[in-house]
Structures are given as structure tokens and as C-alpha cells.
């Protein structure tokens, strides 16, 4: 009786381990949280144009145009290295959305990679703990960029 139980647990354990490994190796979870940088998205725009993708960048200061009557938002998303994408979104932006803020947009990119119709707009923050005495009091720009772009990896070759 005990042996039969043992065998069952071993088979069960293998199946469960297999499911977990399958999930990790297929990068199923990662596909959900990673996003393209503007440069990556522009480079791949031609092959990505039919898909809904996620692109992460920073809101270019001075580029935000918000029309309350039509709930229409337009802004430029940049990777601070010269690659800019113009984003259009219908609907109220999230509370923390402002210029210089890190954002991840979800939507369809145009064939030329210059503009994106966003279906979903999310704000991303940096994460850090520091003692006072650093040079500036606003969120550390480098860390913000790092946290934004640490998600950059080739999404499913």
C-alpha cells in the first residue's frame, strides 16, 4: 500500500515539476511583463504592425497634448537616445502620468515605427532607498532609466 502511494507521488511530482519547467522555459510569464524599448520597437515595426505590443519609455517633456472634451491624449515617448515614438491614447491618463515620467504603453505600432495607437497606458516608477545627501531630491534619473529599460530583451525571436 505504501509503495503504491510512493509511486503516485513521484509521478505526480514529475508532472507538476514538468508543468512548472514548461512555464519557465517557454518564458510564458516573462512575455507578459517585458516590453520593447522605442528603438527596438521601431526596428521591428514592420513585422510587429499587426500585433498588440508593449513599449516602455519616458514621456518627453513639452510633448504632452491633452484634450479633455474628447478625452484625447497625445505625447512623445522617448528612450533618451534620440528614438521617439508619438503616442495617441483615448481616455483619461493615470494619476501619476506627467512629463518626464516613465510609461509603458500597450497598442499597435505603425508600419514606419513613428507612431503608436495606445490601448492601455501604465506608469512605471523607479525603486530605491537612499540617505539624504545625494545631489538632487527628485527621483534619480539614472535609476529610473535603468528600471525602465532593464526589461528590454528580445521578445520571442
Amino acid at each position: 500500500m505504501a509503495n503504491k502511494g510512493k509511486a503516485r507521488w513521484i509521478i505526480g511530482g514529475v508532472v507538476i515539476a514538468g508543468a512548472i519547467l514548461g512555464i519557465s522555459f517557454l518564458n510564458l510569464g516573462d512575455n507578459l511583463i517585458y516590453f520593447y524599448t522605442p528603438s527596438e520597437a521601431q526596428a521591428k515595426a514592420a513585422e510587429l504592425k499587426e500585433q498588440t505590443i508593449k513599449v516602455g519609455g519616458m514621456v518627453l517633456p513639452g510633448s504632452v497634448k491633452w484634450q479633455p472634451e474628447g478625452l484625447s491624449l497625445d505625447f512623445m515617448m522617448t528612450d533618451l537616445k534620440g528614438h521617439n515614438i508619438s503616442v495617441h491614447h483615448n481616455g483619461t491618463p493615470p494619476d501619476m502620468f506627467k512629463e518626464g515620467q516613465g510609461v509603458v504603453v500597450e497598442g499597435r505600432i505603425s508600419t514606419d515605427g513613428q507612431s503608436l495607437a495606445a490601448r492601455n497606458l501604465m506608469v512605471k516608477h523607479s525603486e530605491e532607498y537612499k540617505k539624504p545627501g545625494a545631489e538632487h531630491s527628485s527621483m534619480d534619473k539614472e535609476l529610473l532609466e535603468k528600471s525602465l529599460f532593464k526589461g528590454q530583451q528580445s521578445l520571442g525571436k
Binding site: 510569464g29 507578459l32 511583463i33 516590453f35 508593449k54 509603458v104 501604465m122 512605471k124 516608477h125 523607479s126 525603486e127 530605491e128 532607498y129 537612499k130 540617505k131 535609476l143
Partner: peptide, 28 residues
């Protein structure tokens, strides 16, 4: 935990602990 993480990562407000802990000062 994993499924909620995948569901909410991009919406997440500032993390409480940074992954590496490297920006946390030693006293803290």
C-alpha cells in the same frame, strides 16, 4: 504570487525592496 505578479507588474507602484538591495544603505 507568480500569477498575480504577471497580472500586475506593469501597474506596480514603487517596490518596497529593491531586487539587489544594493541601493539600500547598510544601516537600513
Amino acid at each position: 504570487y507568480k500569477s498575480v505578479t504577471w497580472w500586475r507588474t506593469l501597474h506596480q507602484p514603487p517596490s518596497m525592496i529593491r531586487q539587489g538591495g544594493s541601493t539600500m544603505d547598510p544601516e537600513i
